[in-house]
Design a protein around this nucleic acid. Structure first.
Lengths: 133, 133
DNA sequence: AATCCTCAGTCTAAATTGCAAACTCAGCCT
DNA sequence: AGGCTGAGTTTGCAATTTAGACTGAGGATT
């Protein structure tokens, strides 16, 4: 997991990925939303592509020249759980009502991130041990 | 969640917290494990204490002078889910067998981080929507 | 008692990284 | 031809990070 923090342990990368989960994927939009300097944004996007969390693709709007944008790879999408866990953690200790919620299709109640044992039983964080082989 | 990335969006803070989950909490041990420069380590530990993820306490080993060390606060411990999610994500795309596993008391099967709806039903990441109020 | 050792930092100068703002380049639009 | 837009690149300066030396408190060693 040390390498995971190589990728995620960075102010901008986390924010970029969050944007990606919300669906934003054009350079200018990301830049406007998170306010990173362009040069840093270029660098981070390149790194995220190198790490196969994002991929760069061409798109063309009608009557516009082709441009490129970024989208999450499958591997990147799987990081969603990490973001949900982070958001849940943050919301819990923040006293504001969250303005963004993640809900399952066909429900209004937000999803929770929980731990489960191999029998499907929910487990509390305090009830787990570390096993080192 | 932008502020969460203020705290976590940093190469060393993530590693320090991981150490804390493994139980390491003395300055020298953290330093030896993660290799951060001392001055940065001091700075990050102070920040993590300020953000109430860690607390500093005195301890005394028999026949040694009192020293201080760091331990996770309750708020810090709750971040465990984020770390487990990160580890699970990393393990999935890493082809090595993980050498560290988190297992519930009284079992050998590692816990999984999953999403659950309000009725306790497990939900897949692909089945959720964003709701903005 | 003087010196040594360990831990937990602090200090410093050099290297790296981050920054804002200006510049570039391709192609569509008037 | 000139302008505009998106997606960068460049530049010169500011802030952060780094390795490594230094500090200071107190127990241990001589």
């Amino acid at each position: 997991m040390a390498k995971a923090s190589d990728i995620l342990g960075d102010r901008w990368s986390l924010l970029i990925l969050r944007e990606a989960f919300y669906g934003v994927m054009r350079f200018a939009d990301i830049q406007a939303d998170i306010g990173a300097p362009r040069s840093v944004l270029t660098d981070r996007l390149t790194k995220l592509v190198d790490h196969r969390l994002l991929e760069r693709f061409e798109y063309q709007e009608d009557g516009s020249r082709p441009r490129h944008a970024y989208r999450l790879t499958d591997r990147g999408k799987e990081l969603g759980v990490v973001f949900l866990a982070m958001k849940q953690w943050w919301d819990k200790s923040d006293d504001q009502e969250p303005t963004v919620r993640f809900v399952p299709d066909g429900s209004e109640q937000p999803v929770k991130v929980v731990l489960r044992d191999d029998r499907g039983q929910e487990v509390d964080l305090t009830e787990i041990r570390v096993r080192i082989d």
